[in-house]
Design a protein around this nucleic acid. Structure first.
Lengths: 123, 123
DNA sequence: CAGTCTATGATTAGTCC
DNA sequence: GGGACTAATCATAGACT
């Protein structure tokens, strides 16, 4: 029963992680929907995960495309203003992804699973 | 003090709506960040509003573009596109991007321009 | 309008079935 | 794995500065 403050880090236990994902995804979509309604603003979200075959989207595939189109049509300066140096960003992603691969491999070993297929990474 | 259950409808009072937007946007971004970290999944969000000049994005303009690209290229069910190792993929992107940065800098030097902002890359 | 405060309703981690 | 439950933490409406 929410016994302790949530440790804000990757949940290594597979079933616990999936359970948390499912609960929090639901809560998140609700929050998005509420913000959208309360303030009549345009918002979209795309969530990829190993737990769903297709990405979870909000408000709808069509609605997402509408927001994406708006984003794509934005002046380039606007899109990149807050960007960090791209090389740094990608290096960070590499570190992150390689940690994930190792983690995943460790988990797979633990449950006697040999992944011959390629990893799906969530970044 | 949150005296009553929130009425799940458009807030007509302008300042109350803006205040709520600001608070909830902050909370929402936190939730997104938490879900992403706890479950190591890929997620992006774009929020347009009259209260910000630019859309609020998560995790970053580049991260958003990455998810959008994935969304746009969404494979048909059952498709088994062979993915290269992600680390290799990203290293390749880094090389590519740094070549572009150098090229750009060279060009900028030639016309006496100093770019403090980051490059826009086509991927 | 932007922060800070805080009581209260909402979310959710851990558990049981 | 999927619900249901419930205590514990979290988010935030409204008041105030």
């Amino acid at each position: 029963m929410t016994r302790k403050k949530v440790n804000f880090a990757y949940i290594t236990n597979n079933s616990a992680r999936q359970a948390t994902f499912k609960k929090r995804k639901k809560g998140l979509l609700k929050k998005i929907s509420e913000l959208s309604t309360l303030c009549a603003i345009q918002i979209c979200a795309i969530i990829y995960s190993p737990y769903d075959l297709e990405p979870e989207v909000w408000p709808s595939p069509l609605g997402v495309q509408s927001v994406i189109a708006r984003f794509k049509n934005m002046p380039k300066a606007g899109q990149s203003r807050k960007m960090m140096n791209l090389g740094s960003f990608l290096r960070q992603m590499i570190t992150k992804s390689e940690e994930q691969v190792k983690k995943q491999q460790r988990e797979n070993r633990e449950r006697g699973y040999d992944p011959s297929h390629v990893q799906e990474l969530g970044w």
